[in-house]
């Protein structure tokens, strides 16, 4: 075990309502971080997620990740799929942390509204050092093949919008 204990990790919190694909998007991000050779941890609370309540998922990656949970007020990025849940989740962001929400890319902007999770992942990707190709690889590995084209499009639209807004 490394003695390197001072954290140099990227902290992402994804939030939305049950059924919006928060857990899928967080799986893709964590998978991509692992493909990039990073240490990664991901924490979430399941259980009631299929009943439409607030679902949040913490994804942390870097050289060495300890706790699986993003410490309160230390998220670098908050990816929010449901605007109604901003009040309940904004406290996770650190001062100067980046909110990535439906103001960047909304479901209406997409060929399939259900790809909002992947579109916001595309928007997040412009901020990350994880190569775009690895995120797309992870997406393809985690989703059934018939969903690949619409999600590739959604990812690209999210990425474009975020780049344009910079």
């Amino acid at each position: 075990m490394s003695a390197e204990r001072v954290p140099t990790v990227v902290n992402v919190v994804m939030a939305g309502l049950g059924g919006q694909g928060v857990l899928t998007a967080s799986d893709i991000l964590a998978d991509a971080a692992m493909r990039a050779g990073l240490d990664v941890k991901k924490a979430e609370v399941h259980g009631m997620s299929q009943r439409g309540g607030l679902v949040t998922s913490d994804i942390r990656f870097g050289d060495r990740v300890w706790s699986p949970m993003v410490p309160p007020g230390e998220a670098d990025y908050l990816v929010l799929l449901a605007p109604t849940e901003l009040e309940a989740t904004r406290a996770v962001l650190k001062p100067g942390g980046v909110l990535i929400d439906t103001g960047v890319v909304a479901a209406e902007d997409l060929p399939n509204r259900r790809s909002l999770n992947v579109a916001l992942l595309g928007a997040l990707s412009v901020h990350l050092s994880i190569p775009e190709a690895l995120l797309l690889d992870a997406m393809r590995a985690d989703l059934p093949e018939k969903l690949h084209p619409t999600n590739e499009q959604a990812f690209a639209i999210g990425r474009e919008r975020a780049l344009a807004a910079r």
Partner: peptide
């Protein structure tokens, strides 16, 4: 526990904590 709470334990912070904001509750489909 979480990292923040462990820091408070180490800092002898025994104050009652503020409740965490809750989002939309689950409901019957």
């Amino acid at each position: 526990l979480n990292v923040g709470r462990v820091r408070r334990i180490l800092g002898h912070d025994a104050l009652e904590e503020r409740p965490v904001p809750t989002g939309k509750a689950p409901e019957l489909c």
